[in-house]
Write a protein that binds this DNA or RNA. Sequence first.
DNA 1: CACGATACGGAACGTTGTTCCGTTTGCCAA
DNA 2: TTGGCAAACGGAACAACGTTCCGTATCGTG
Lengths: 195, 195
Amino acid sequence: MADNGSGAAPSGRRKRADARRNEVTLLDAAAAAFVAAGVDVPVRDIAARAGVGVGTIYRHFPTRADLIVAVYRHQVEACAEAGPALLADGGTPHAALARWIDLFVDFLVTKHGLAEALQSDDAAFQSLHAYFIDRLVPVCGQLLDAAAAAGEIRPDIGAYELLRGVGNLCVGAGGNPRYDARRLVELLIAGLRLH
Amino acid sequence: MADNGSGAAPSGRRKRADARRNEVTLLDAAAAAFVAAGVDVPVRDIAARAGVGVGTIYRHFPTRADLIVAVYRHQVEACAEAGPALLADGGTPHAALARWIDLFVDFLVTKHGLAEALQSDDAAFQSLHAYFIDRLVPVCGQLLDAAAAAGEIRPDIGAYELLRGVGNLCVGAGGNPRYDARRLVELLIAGLRLH
DNA sequence: CACGATACGGAACGTTGTTCCGTTTGCCAA
DNA sequence: TTGGCAAACGGAACAACGTTCCGTATCGTG
């Protein structure tokens, strides 16, 4: 899983050494740029930071979304894996759900502009959207099902809808002291509860 | 209030006839363009629709936000005025709040891209943001205070925060059948309730 | 070492928002 | 009525951005 470059190995061909080197350089530069200027940072800035041309970025990451996914893949995986773990941890399913959502919110609000990008219907972000959906909706669904089966929450809400709502609440949550996304998400989860 | 063009009369000077004519043409064209292509429709498209040059738009409406505000001012006013009316209508304050929020949600979800623009931290949308805040936060605060005074809701949530959360939930609510902003807002309001 | 495939750099293109200025036009006074 | 000037207009021009493209450089292999 970590011999070739990028994600899936097309067949058996090994990438050129400079290409593999540039890929990690690019990931580092992008991560730094995202922290410094948000995920909307101009592609040229990332290229400059990495000391490469913009063409190199697009060869490695056909869309901006692919770059974002690559940068955050580890953290998304960690979040996804935390779902079943929380469920098994002993508390009520609703508590597990609340804690998992908290993890998700923490992730989103610390990545400047990521929540915005996630909700954008721009075609360029489609693969970002798809990745988050594919990876996190099943996990959320599992938590939701468990809580519903335990009779703790109303059963008429879908995992996609909830996750998207939570993501939406995190939009613009950076820095503004008058807007605390966490509290609103808490309210939303509270509203899910039966009685 | 309707003798001069635009909003506030600078001093006593009457605008030229063609300028006044162009202003209403522009408002009509913008309204139509917003419906057809969302509030992010390119300025050039609006200009073409109105049969004027882009310069004319910028003279009348220095920023895109000013144009949006002008187009929707009537509806925002109506929403603002509905707040006290609902409160006086006899139901519980919480019911009045819920119905008012519903009005706000209806307004937002039917204006393609408006919710997104509202949350954008782009400097160009600052005056849009400011107008909505100025006009609606006090109304929402009044409803919130009444409900809190009646002991129906937890008192630790601000009007700005709530309105912004609701606005956020409306982002991307157009057309997607798997995402029903209204239901999530309902959940949020339910979560506000004590017990 | 030579040569083909691979990858690179950055110029160039298309799309936007916004500004600027030469030209036109409405309005008022003479 | 007409002359002149401030107001308003149109759209070319600029800047910032994402994305594509292709001539050039480099790697790895025979």
